[in-house]
Design a binder for these strands. Sequence first.
DNA 1: GGTCTGTCTCGAATCGATTCGATGCGGTGA
DNA 2: TCACCGCATCGAATCGATTCGAGACAGACC
Lengths: 357, 357
Amino acid sequence: MAHSRPTLADVASTAGVSVSTASLAFSGSGPIAEETRARVLAAAERLGYSGPNPLGRSLRSGRSGIAAVIIGDHLRRSFRDPVAIQVLDGLTGALGQLGLGVLLIPALPDPERPTAVDPLVESAAMDAAVLIWGFRTDDPVLAVLRRRGVPVVVGEGPSTTTAPVVSIDDQTGSAALGRHLLELGHERVAVVSLPFDAARRCGPVDAARRAQLDWAPTRHRLLGLESVGIRPTVVMEAEASLVEAGREAGLRVLQGGPGERPTAVVAQSDLLAAGVLIAARELGLRVPDDVSVAGFDGLDLPWLAPDVLTTVVQPLQARGEAMGRMVGRLLAGEEPEDMVFDVELRVGTTTAPPPPR
Amino acid sequence: MAHSRPTLADVASTAGVSVSTASLAFSGSGPIAEETRARVLAAAERLGYSGPNPLGRSLRSGRSGIAAVIIGDHLRRSFRDPVAIQVLDGLTGALGQLGLGVLLIPALPDPERPTAVDPLVESAAMDAAVLIWGFRTDDPVLAVLRRRGVPVVVGEGPSTTTAPVVSIDDQTGSAALGRHLLELGHERVAVVSLPFDAARRCGPVDAARRAQLDWAPTRHRLLGLESVGIRPTVVMEAEASLVEAGREAGLRVLQGGPGERPTAVVAQSDLLAAGVLIAARELGLRVPDDVSVAGFDGLDLPWLAPDVLTTVVQPLQARGEAMGRMVGRLLAGEEPEDMVFDVELRVGTTTAPPPPR
DNA sequence: GGTCTGTCTCGAATCGATTCGATGCGGTGA
DNA sequence: TCACCGCATCGAATCGATTCGAGACAGACC
């Protein structure tokens, strides 16, 4: 007591009341005379007691006040994508409303021990977990959380789980974009895709690779195009949703003469699309005169000015907030349904009819 | 016991041992027969017991295994800056090594109640806190943490505190950049600065505003230029370290004819510099022929290609890691000194001698 | 005066683990 | 044979709070 921080018991004895009364003075859950309360608070002030220790409180209540946000990648890679940031921002806001803090866990899969899981996933205190990025259908993280009995919300990830999923209507949005390109008259459409899985290869996709496709947004956005009858001349898998990766993929996709190369490139994210724009510029191609470029996400990319990207707008922050609210419902004992947000095609200046032959 | 999750006591009684022995089987801190241990683990497996409850463990050990990372802004604003992301990435990595999780707290100052503090800062369980962004010298967050007795490491922030600070040598780096410009022959140098404080105005800085300058990197980078004799023709404060803000400030700074406008613009971050480049392009100015532009941070900005920004490179991830290690030393009871990283001038293609008159 | 009601306070149990000191036991050396 | 030692195990205290049921007391009413 001399050295360590004061406890509620110290405060109580200083104030001349019992521990339970002192507890009441802080929590306010129960009848207490105003005068007594003031005496307790004064004693606390005097001792430099700064409120009930959260650890003791947690143990008793069984709740830690923490929601884990688990990401299957390095932060420096995932969070260079403004998409992730905005979702996270909405999520922390909504969780904050619930009184929950956000424990950030970058749960990198270890290629050498694929079933191993970050120790924090295994043992950190958490009332719920949100998987927002980069998980496989059979991800061990999911298994560990289930074993621990932690309620889980899945942001972007496998849909074949027992956890509720908050996602966007990738497929419909992609289909709308596809129709837009068809109406403009495009026949040779190339796709620069998001990664297929954690392997993060970069290169053209063949049938074998296509069969491995495990990442939900990638698959749905591809299906959307195909659903309106577009057969991509090539699907070029990018290493990550980053400008640099889009540029690299763009350079490979846009090779060839006017008769061979695609007249339109659909990138599966705005950052990839920005990279493709840069690649086109480097190759001396005019957008949209020589080639049309479209993205996905609806980011605000001022440095593309004066170009305005044709893209599919998704509600990023709202998606994060919805994930947060779903955590709340899970904790309230409900069994929420999956949730799908609508998206909207926004036509900019980067798509136009294909060049005449 | 029927409904709730099994506890160590359940496992112990199932295995036919005492609770303390069962604890030993999991923690491994103490002698235990291999055979007994196996029996305990088997019982745990049978009951679906997934390891000791972190809350109980925490209460006993007095440690939560959590380090708070506190940011004085919305995530969607701070984290759109790759600088913040890379620092955070290094930080989480280093804290992970220590077995600490990262509790992310966006502690937005409430303009109506400036002394109020996010409830999580007030009451979340944490073994240490790292303030990485956007704090004033007399920030109430710091006061609350001190009252709670939480060890604090300051990333970018007030240097006049009792907490150790991990920073970079802004001033020397800025001075090197200043000398580079002087050697090229520049006389009219404008500055596009980082925000001065949380107020986030955007506009030219007058003496009164200059006196309010409370944000360490802004001040030091300004001092560095002045220390080599550069008197900026104007200091234009930007709203945030973002491309769009840099563009806006750049448009205002680059007004005027060849004889009036600055021949060089020093932006206090690479994102701001990128915005200035865009502004110059929009105004029909060639870089570096008509105007030189320099930044700070040393980011990888592929979409500026073929330009390569002249900038001051700072070790972002290493800085984050150092902050993490400093937390470790604080927890070990040491009293670490402040830490300052060196930076390095990297000359790119965006600076050249001023145009002849 | 006695009883009842309502308000305030208290003691003790509880949350789930860790840890320290004690105990029992088989084996060794004198 | 006895004292002693080390290993494995156990019991009980402990961490810091919350909460429930019980008790004390004052005022109101019959």
